[in-house]
């Protein structure tokens, strides 16, 4: 089946079947990126613009590698060095890029819903690479891929998301993806950082990190997004680290093995101590590798739905 959608805006909008299609295709691309020549010619007639209105290292490099390994032409655009600084609107910026015959846009934007807005008004495939505190679909896809790869299934796996749930697009996309694929999901963090109506999404809330870890098979640990917090949600980072930080001692007190995921960037010593981040529990770097395979799968499958231009 081809994907039933032209864009990847969020996990909320895509079907379970589409998610599986992406995960299965990613298995093939993971094999491709482990070959001596890590490149296939599939997207050689596609041009992709990476439009980043917000800082990013991992996601931008990951998308760019994915695009290049599919042989697409790539242009990069960062807001700080562009006409946005001269007062151009988002729609004008994108339409100007598209006028140069670009087929797909990968966009990160600080405003929730920005890619949805674009999808409505422009004629190109839009991939959301993170919109504010809303969604980060490819991160959720690579997280479920990593869980599937490790356990061989997702159905029934217990996943707790620890940290700043309120400001995290990774948390929201993960909840949607995990619930669609049949996992049990919980969140854990200071109550001031947990949205009030989160339980309407069908997730448990743990106040204490030890209880949460005792319950789960997988802990997806998030960074505290100080740059997004307009009011102080907890007294100090030191106190947060004390109550919600995960260290070796806490892990060994569980008497069971759990898997640690982290979308990066890590603030070592706050949400994770170094001995946990670098331990055999953590698959943080495998997540990064899987990220390229997942993004190749998304780009490949969405490209299949792009009309071929007229050659007259």
């Amino acid at each position: 089946m081809p994907l039933s959608t032209k864009h990847l805006l969020g996990i909320k909008e895509i079907s379970e079947q589409d998610i599986w299609q992406i995960l299965e295709t990613a298995v093939r691309f993971k094999e491709v990126i482990n070959r001596p020549i890590k490149k296939v010619p599939s997207l050689r007639d596609i041009t992709i613009a990476n439009v980043f209105f917000e800082n990013s290292t991992r996601t931008r490099i990951s998308f760019e590698l994915a695009e290049r390994r599919l042989s697409a032409d790539v242009v990069n655009f960062t807001a700080s060095s562009s006409s946005v600084a001269k007062g151009e609107t988002l729609l004008d910026t994108i339409n100007n890029i598209l006028a140069m015959k670009v087929d797909m846009i990968v966009m990160r934007h600080p405003s929730p819903g920005a890619p949805h807005f674009l999808a409505k008004y422009v004629n190109a495939s839009i991939i959301n690479a993170g919109d504010g505190t809303h969604e980060h679909p490819t991160q959720a896809l690579l997280d479920v891929y990593s869980i599937q790869e490790y356990f061989g299934r997702i159905q029934g796996i217990k996943v707790v998301i620890v940290g700043d749930i309120m400001h995290s697009r990774v948390a929201l996309s993960n909840i949607f993806a995990l619930k669609k694929l049949g996992a049990e999901v919980a969140v854990c963090g200071p109550l001031s950082l947990i949205p009030r109506y989160i339980s309407t999404l069908g997730v448990h809330v743990f106040e204490h990190v030890q209880q949460a870890l005792l319950w789960c098979d997988v802990a997806n640990v998030l960074r505290i997004q100080l740059e997004r917090q307009k009011v102080k949600a907890f007294p100090s980072l030191r106190e947060y680290a004390l109550y919600y930080g995960i260290n070796k001692e806490l892990l060994s007190s569980l008497n069971k093995r759990i898997l640690i995921l982290h979308p990066g960037p890590i603030n070592r010593g706050i949400e994770l101590t170094s001995d946990v981040a670098d331990s055999e529990h953590s698959i943080i770097l495998q997540q990064v590798e899987n990220g390229v395979a997942i993004r190749m799968a998304v780009l490949y499958l969405l490209a299949e739905n792009i009309q071929i231009g007229n050659f007259q």
């Binding site: 089946m1 081809p2 295709t25 093939r28 094999e31 491709v32 296939v40 010619p41 599939s42 490949y300 499958l301 490209a303 299949e304 792009i306 071929i308």
Partner: peptide
């Protein structure tokens, strides 16, 4: 051979190409 085919996005039957293991 899926990723090397010349009929990606060009198949008349619109049947997608599904990759198998290499």
């Amino acid at each position: 051979t899926t990723f090397y085919r010349d009929d990606f996005r060009r198949r008349a039957d619109k049947k997608p190409l599904e990759a198998s293991q290499t």
